[in-house]
Nucleic acid binder design. Structure first.
Length: 355
DNA sequence: AAAGCGGGGCC
DNA sequence: GGCCCAGCTTT
């Protein structure tokens, strides 16, 4: 046991009890609700996840309700939250718990971490909050707080850093109340020891924080190399036929937006004119056997949809046809399909769909 | 060990 | 424009 542990955890927990937010998943130890909230909050701010937590708990009050839903329903409810593999894994795990475990949630770290979509962080969170098991969480907040207070400059995104921080976090864990301690350190990182411009001068750790007393708060935690952003050029073909149908295709390939729907897509190396687009193999395949009445660019300027690792330069081409042959979707039913935000934004502003 | 995976908020 | 967010999975 680290000799600093009681000092550190006592201060943290005192701060937490005075400063914690009332969040909808606080005040329950039901693992279904804690699990739901933890999956939603992976790489996601509380403010962004909150509305989804309300939607999911209302629509699926129990794990059986979630298990009984279709994947498309789950994805539709998840739409806009991003990292859609979380939703697919959530659904897979719900079915496993409901139908294989008869609704009894796993209650050990080992069994929790074996669930799809549940890694070390989430298993530790559920184990500590729901079952009072002594597993320390290490999320982005914990990295930041520990790195600064203890002056650790090992990069947080290399294996040595990941291992070292986990060991330290585990030493500092208040074992008589691991759930409260874990939430306390995360809340402290989220609300006080924030990434930019923390108010160190009135911090509870200002006397002992190594980074503050070093003047190195801005440089800590150390994180290696940022991702290089790739540019891609998307041309969506928005078919319109007289019977008020269009075409939507489900993305089943590897990559972004798996299992979500989109308009037929022609990806090109750069922004293209209509003449060039018409010569693309992908375009020819998509319109094969179809009577084209007109192809009109919706807007000249590309929409630049930014993902963390890709910038999608996107244009929508309105393709009037006499008949949609494949993957027909009545315009009135588009709203039932889970789609990326990029597509939803277009649907919401395109008059032929909104009228 | 490194890459891939969303969307949004803040500076 | 860059950084980060209650990370996990695949390669």
């Amino acid at each position: 046991m680290n000799e600093n542990a009681p000092f550190f955890s006592n201060k943290l927990i005192s701060w937490y009890l005075e400063n914690k937010r009332e969040l909808p998943w606080r005040g329950t130890k039901d693992p279904y609700f804690i699990w739901l909230s933890e999956i939603m909050l992976q790489q996601t701010r509380v403010a962004q996840g909150m509305p989804y937590y309300f939607k999911f708990t209302e629509t699926f009050p129990t794990v059986f309700d979630l298990a009984a839903a279709s994947e498309a329903e789950v994805l539709k409810l998840w739409q806009g939250l991003g990292y859609y593999s979380r939703a697919r894994n959530l659904h897979t795990t719900a079915k496993y718990i409901a139908y294989e475990l008869n609704g009894r949630f796993p209650s050990t770290y080992k069994d929790l971490v074996a669930l799809k979509g549940v890694g070390d962080y989430t298993a530790s969170a559920i184990a500590s909050i729901c079952f009072s098991l002594p597993h320390a969480v290490v999320d982005g907040n914990v990295y930041r707080v520990l790195a600064r207070v203890f002056g650790i400059t090992t990069p947080i995104n290399v294996s040595k850093g990941i291992k070292d921080f986990k060991v330290l976090a585990q030493k500092l864990l208040e074992e008589s109340n691991p759930g409260t301690y874990n939430q306390a350190i995360m809340e402290f990182g989220a609300r006080f020891c924030v990434p930019q411009n923390p108010e160190c001068s009135r911090c509870i750790f200002k006397d002992e924080c190594v980074a503050y007393n070093n003047g190195s708060v801005k440089e800590i935690p150390v994180k290696l190399k940022k991702v290089k952003v790739k540019k891609r050029f998307f041309n969506y073909l928005v078919f319109l036929s007289p019977d008020n149908t269009t075409q939507l295709i489900q993305r089943t390939q590897k990559g972004i937006w798996q299992q979500l729907y989109e308009f037929p897509l022609v990806e090109t190396e750069k922004e293209v004119s209509l003449d060039v687009l018409k010569k693309e193999t992908g375009f020819k395949t998509l319109v094969a056997g179809i009577q084209l009445q007109s192809v009109v660019l919706y807007k000249e300027d590309s929409v630049i949809h930014k993902l963390s690792h890709q910038h999608l330069y996107t244009r929508f081409w309105i393709v009037s046809v006499s008949e949609v042959k494949k993957n027909r979707v009545p315009i009135s039913e588009i709203r039932d399909y889970p789609v990326p935000v990029l597509i939803q934004n277009f649907i919401s502003e395109f008059s032929a769909f909104t009228n």
